[in-house]
Design a protein around this nucleic acid. Structure first.
Lengths: 236, 236
DNA sequence: CCAAAAGTGTTTATTTTACACCCATGA
DNA sequence: TCATGGGTGTAAAATAAACACTTTTGG
């Protein structure tokens, strides 16, 4: 009963929830599945874990193969193990969560696997339990971004505070006070102001900032208060 | 390459990090492993996932079998997949995290599997990557307990505020101001005062409280500020 | 009576919020 | 010049921190 030889063995998959931001709204990367079953249906990017790799390596390999991208930010989300979650054969899936500057990578995205970016509030039906995975990932994104400077991963190297605020507003479906948002973000000391301005969105122009790599790395894991009224965010 | 039939299949384990509190300090439940390899070594409670159950069901089944206890609080922690983590055969392990009132369950704990409670700051060497799992679980406990009323799960149904404070202090290895702690906890409206007092720890006696199930359930997931100076807790 | 722990009060500092106001500039 | 978004100032409110003080009671 407890001996290795008598135990069941399982297919192990990885599935990746990839969020991107195009300056307008938060989007999710999905592909049209290229093999049976459910060929042609929308699906998260995923694949099977191989014998000689960790699940994290599998996720990176699959993402690299299917998108051509080395994910700059990725973390494990949750392992899904419902016995009927895959219609073909019982498969346990380890889900990963990644963030991308959509603008930067969209040219480099290979078209071979029919990728598509869907607005996070208008997702198509996905195969298996992939919609459930996305819901959990959205919760985690909102939870974590309220406490840690996670959303910078979705922006280009140079961005303005109003752009950052717009991103936060689209993640939380809320409007924040610009004065307070400014001070709160700048008080974290995570940003360095650059000499030039973005003049596309206003006549006056907004200064560009870049992430201060030192303080970003040092403070990423400490608690911040990046979102107004976080008491009302219902975590997990 | 992408077809189900050609993929590797893996042993899937669950391992459980069980924290308990005895009124003095935080402890971890481990057992002496009863089978080869590493028979007799200290190990987390674990077992293999079977064909017809989810990983969560496997964790609950294994815990029930080995301890006799239906875990009142359990959540998935992380999936560990280093290729060499099990010396016998490649095994991927889904780790779970559980909290127990140690006093309540210690009689009921079956002795068959040689269980032992170790103080969290003086753990023995555990097999495989189990020490690593415990470290991650400790981080998560500290992280989550600073924001959510998690630690109540470690206390009996009736407890005093000084007892609760002592628990927080032992989890964070810190001393908190009793006046501020009192007000902070009571302001959450999570506790209901009972008519009687605990007179064991002081002459004056401290009122017993119980968790208010309604507000507890309703507010569990919202952000609170249960620990002084949370800005200094380094999350994850 | 008094030591010791429980619990309350109070003052100060810090953070958050709301919102008024000034600034720069392209059309 | 003036509408528009960028950015700063400020006062009020809420929260947090430090610490003094009062209460209770077994020995």
């Amino acid at each position: 009963m407890r001996h290795y030889s008598r135990q069941s063995r399982f297919l192990l998959a990885v599935d990746c929830i990839i969020f991107g931001y195009d300056g307008q709204e938060l989007k999710l990367l999905v592909i049209q599945r290229g093999f049976q079953p459910w060929k042609g249906e929308w699906s998260l990017i995923g694949g099977f874990v191989q014998q000689e790799e960790t699940s994290e390596e599998a996720a990176r390999r699959v993402l690299k193969n299917l998108t051509g991208i080395d994910m700059p930010y990725m973390e494990q989300l949750h392992t899904f193990s419902r016995t009927d979650r895959d219609s073909e054969e019982r498969t346990v899936s380890i889900a990963y969560f990644a963030l991308l500057d959509l603008q930067k990578y969209k040219q480099q995205l290979s078209e071979d696997f029919h990728p598509a970016w869907f607005p996070i509030n208008h997702l198509p039906h996905l195969i298996f339990d992939h919609n459930e995975m996305v819901e959990l990932a959205k919760e985690k994104l909102r939870y974590k971004a309220a406490l840690h400077p996670l959303l910078f991963e979705l922006l280009p190297a140079k961005f303005t505070i109003p752009q950052l605020q717009h991103l936060y507003e689209s993640v939380y479906n809320a409007k924040f006070d610009k004065g307070n948002f400014n001070r709160k973000i700048l008080s974290t000391d995570l940003l360095t102001r650059l000499p030039d301005k973005d003049k596309l969105n206003s006549k006056k122009g907004a200064f560009y900032y870049k992430v201060n790599a030192k303080t970003y790395k040092a403070n990423f894991h400490s608690f911040m208060n990046l979102v107004p009224d976080p008491g009302k965010i219902t975590g997990k």
